[in-house]
Amino acid sequence: MKHGDRRYADPPFPRDLHGRDRPDPFFRALDRLADGLQPLLSALGGAKHPAGAEHSDGAGALGGGAVPMRVAAVGRPAEEVTALRLEPLDGRPVRPWQPGWHLDLVLPSGTVRQYSLCGDPADPAGYRIAVRRIPGGAGSGEVHALEPGAQVAVRGPRNAFPFARAERYVFIAGGIGITPILPMAKAAARRGAPYRLVVAGRSRAALPFLDELPRAPSGSVEVRTDDAGGVPDGAELLGAPPAGASVYCCGPPPLIEAVRAALPDAPPLPFHWERFSPPPVRGGAPFEVELARSGRVVAVPADRTALDAVRAVVPGAAFSCRQGFCGTCRVPLLEGRADHRDRPTGGAPGDRGTVALCVSRAAGGGRLVIDL
Results as ranks from 00 to 15, higher is better:
231 V>M: 12
109 S>Q: 05
253 P>G: 04
237 L>S: 12
289 V>R: 01
250 C>P: 11
30 L>S: 08
265 D>H: 10
69 M>C: 11
311 R>M: 10
15 R>V: 01
56 S>T: 12
108 P>L: 13
248 Y>C: 05
294 S>Q: 09
212 E>Y: 01
277 S>W: 11
168 R>P: 00
178 I>E: 03
243 A>Q: 13
371 D>Y: 08
71 V>Q: 06
336 G>A: 03
214 P>D: 05
319 F>T: 07
236 E>W: 11
62 L>T: 14
110 G>Y: 08
271 F>H: 09
275 R>T: 14
355 V>C: 11
97 W>V: 08
357 L>G: 03
50 P>D: 02
134 I>A: 14
148 P>D: 07
110 G>I: 07
54 E>P: 04
217 P>A: 05
102 H>N: 12
345 T>I: 06
271 F>V: 05
187 A>W: 03
3 H>Y: 09
220 S>P: 00
79 E>G: 05
328 T>M: 05
91 G>N: 13
190 R>V: 09
54 E>I: 02
211 D>M: 06
261 A>S: 14
206 A>D: 12
71 V>S: 06
231 V>T: 15
339 D>T: 00
36 G>F: 02
248 Y>P: 10
131 V>S: 03
79 E>A: 13
257 E>R: 15
62 L>M: 12
250 C>H: 07
248 Y>H: 10
281 V>I: 12
277 S>L: 06
361 R>Y: 02
350 G>A: 07
101 W>E: 15
76 R>H: 14
179 T>D: 02
291 L>W: 01
354 T>N: 05
269 L>F: 03
240 A>R: 12
126 G>I: 07
282 R>N: 00
285 A>T: 08
115 Y>K: 00
125 A>G: 14
271 F>I: 03
271 F>T: 02
289 V>I: 12
164 A>Q: 13
244 G>S: 10
352 R>S: 11
302 A>F: 09
103 L>V: 11
361 R>K: 01
153 A>E: 04
21 D>G: 02
86 L>F: 09
39 P>R: 07
207 L>V: 02
225 T>L: 14
368 L>Q: 09
88 P>M: 13
360 S>M: 02
297 V>L: 07
246 S>N: 10
13 F>W: 15
2 K>A: 14
76 R>P: 04
99 P>N: 06
343 R>V: 13
370 I>V: 15
75 G>T: 11
237 L>G: 10
110 G>Q: 04
13 F>L: 04
162 P>G: 02
242 P>F: 00
102 H>V: 10
232 P>K: 05
192 G>K: 04
42 S>H: 15
21 D>F: 00
350 G>V: 01
23 P>A: 10
